[in-house]
């Protein structure tokens, strides 16, 4: 079972832009990386025989609100053979949120990233099929953003929440 320190070293070596930051306040323990470094880091964690994170359990989008002006994507990784957990986090600006897509590594990322795109408007670059998934295609806005206000009418149906 790889220790958290060895995973951290691996992540540090894979980061070329900004050094990663450890977030102790998360369970499983989280490493915050820059959006530009996400793809090489994920590739390392996925392919390296020491970590072997073969399962991407959950991809979560988080909006920190207009005052903090950031959005986050949290990836919960799990390695079946080693029984280790890890959380990877990426912080992006709310203006033009862009995160590289991990659907090339884990197929499960495909739909989960589509859901985040739908709910938060975070754009996943390199995603093969980035469409809305839960909301209708012609819905206005991204419902889980903290400053979201719904449209008055959708196809003559009053939207009430």
């Amino acid at each position: 079972m790889p220790a958290f320190e060895s995973i951290l070293t691996l992540v540090q070596n894979a980061c070329t832009h900004t050094p990663p930051v450890v977030d102790d306040n998360a369970s499983p323990k989280a490493i915050v990386v820059a959006a530009e470094d996400l793809l090489p880091v994920a590739q390392q964690l996925f392919a390296s025989p020491e970590t072997y994170f073969d399962m991407l359990s959950c991809v979560t989008g988080i909006d920190n609100g207009p005052t903090a002006h950031t959005m986050e994507v949290a990836y919960t990784l799990y390695s079946i053979p080693f029984h280790t957990h890890l959380m990877l986090k990426v912080k992006v600006s709310r203006e033009k949120p862009e995160v590289p897509s991990l659907s090339g590594l884990w197929k499960t990322a495909n739909w989960q990233e589509r859901e985040i795109f739908d709910m938060y408007g975070i754009h996943f670059t390199g995603h093969p099929d980035l469409r809305r998934i839960l909301m209708p295609e012609d819905w206005e806005g991204h419902p889980l953003r903290k400053d979201y206000t719904h449209q008055g009418y959708y196809r003559d149906i009053k939207v009430a929440y």
Partner: peptide, 21 residues
């Protein structure tokens, strides 16, 4: 307390997880 937490459990269909902040 202020934290992020991912919890998972086995329901009949598979892994149900909740991410809390």
């Amino acid at each position: 307390k202020a934290q992020d937490l991912y919890v998972r459990a086995e329901i009949p269909k598979g892994e149900l997880g909740f991410f809390f902040r």
